[in-house]
Design a protein around this nucleic acid. Structure first.
Lengths: 261, 261
DNA sequence: CTGTTCAAATCGGTCATACCACTTATCCTG
DNA sequence: CAGGATAAGTGGTATGACCGATTTGAACAG
């Protein structure tokens, strides 16, 4: 672990603009940008760090909490505060997007469209760059789908893993993160409707088309196959959530994702 | 404004899982999802709200700060805490992505690629849906670029506005937000290199190609024109940031965006 | 000597209280 | 009636304390 006992923490100038906690956030951010704080590093105890920065503990905690809210830091009671480790695909928190969907009244159509755009992009890139192992994993997941045609929940597991593998094969972690961010929100509703899913066989078939296009290193075919798959999935979803008869109107739409169909 | 004096605030059960502040966050989020809190609404004073929820003020403030960090709430000293208003294109905070770029060592190539994928998507959608007003705005910005060939900074203003107009014309606020999120990070470096930009005329020309494709409602042409434009921009940027001779290696890369060229 | 157990130290989570800084609205003054 | 002084309201910060979860290491049993 990086040695944090050195004097890389500097006192905060009381004569500045903005609030003190904002300055704390800036300090911590700069330390991350400079590389003083690396993924997995543990921050000094709050009491010590507060003294180093020359602020009170509540103010320091406010800064830490802000960075924790965006997924950069993680506090564990009794253990300490850590810089989030960078193993595996980095993930952006989807709750901001979910809340913004509620605030702005995003429609599920917009959400599907955004997902489709992102998935098409990663599918095209995956067709150019997928390694043998990644393609093998995709094939396994497709096989898993065909083997789970009578188990919708298990089918969904393979479905999600397939898409994540494609995203990873794109080699672009930013697009992967954004895609996961959008897909996570839609996933919550899929898991509720998947039990009544009817055409799993067709879905598996379309996933296979995507896989074959990627295997053949044909970006355009991969994009189109993915696009067709998601368009089909969207239509299926829309037919699933057809307004039930006589549902009394209330503030809650019941699907819990803040999306209007 | 929505009446918040009613008893929509419920006490928090001390016997729960997770921390108290997490429960506060959940409470506030649900209130937003349910529509009890609408954009622009002002929350009750912290002292009152803390009593309503049955928690202490610091704990409540922790929850508020978490939601403020992701751009859902905004506190103004002396005024109050508000739900962010939803006018204009909703914007996701780009700092999480910027920090993640530092933590995971994202390359600028990945960033450009992600932006290119998003811009191509919105350009294609814009070609299908752009209104007359939006196309007029695009034309104005293109004209502004040609009029600012000798003023790089002014040119950049028109450049950014053009892309934002295209995004808005896509009709998909989610893709627009994601695109802005990525573009914001790249913008910081562009404003530093733009002074030495040489081929502004060619850039303006390529923007015009994008505009004409959108005007002709030709999604594929729009996508290709946008792709060509951004590929050119990326190559130009890469040639600008060629490592200067004899620059001593230090922790800070100097471009301040946490990206490795 | 090895492995387990348990207790003390560590550290984040919460609470209570007080004071400060800024904003807003009211009221007084000219 | 207009404008500025004033007071109430509200978020920001600080201090101090206690609680509960986690970690760690020493004491103990094998």
């Amino acid at each position: 672990m990086t040695d944090l006992n050195s004097d890389i923490f500097k006192h905060i100038d009381p004569e500045r603009r903005g609030t003190t906690s904002e300055e704390v956030i800036s300090q911590l951010r700069e330390m991350i940008h400079r590389g003083d704080l690396r993924p997995g590093d543990r921050l000094p105890p709050e009491r010590d760090l507060a003294k180093m920065l020359g602020v009170s503990r509540p103010t320091l905690r406010a800064g830490i909490r802000s960075l924790a809210a965006v997924g950069v830091l993680q506090s564990r009671q009794g253990a300490g505060t850590f810089v989030v480790k960078a193993d595996g695909p980095p993930s952006l928190d989807s709750s901001p997007l979910r809340l913004m969907a509620s605030l702005h009244g995003f429609t599920s159509a917009e959400m599907f469209e955004a997902r489709q755009a992102l998935e098409m992009a990663v599918a095209g890139l995956a067709a150019e760059r997928a390694t043998g192992d990644q393609m093998a994993t995709m094939a396994e997941e497709v096989a898993g789908m065909f083997a789970s045609l009578d188990d919708p929940e298990q089918f969904l597991v393979h479905d999600v893993r397939f898409h994540q593998t494609v995203a990873a094969a794109s080699g672009n972690r930013i697009l992967t993160s954004l895609m996961n961010m959008v897909a996570t929100i839609l996933f919550d509703t899929r898991i509720k409707t998947v039990k009544r899913a009817t055409d799993l066989k067709e879905s598996a078939e379309m996933h296979r088309h995507v896989y074959r296009a990627i295997r053949e290193h044909d970006p355009e075919a991969a994009r189109h196959a993915m696009s067709a798959h998601l368009s089909k999935a969207q239509r299926a979803w829309e037919s699933e959530v057809e307004v039930p008869e006589g549902s009394a109107p209330d503030n809650s739409n019941g699907n819990g994702n803040g999306l209007a169909p």
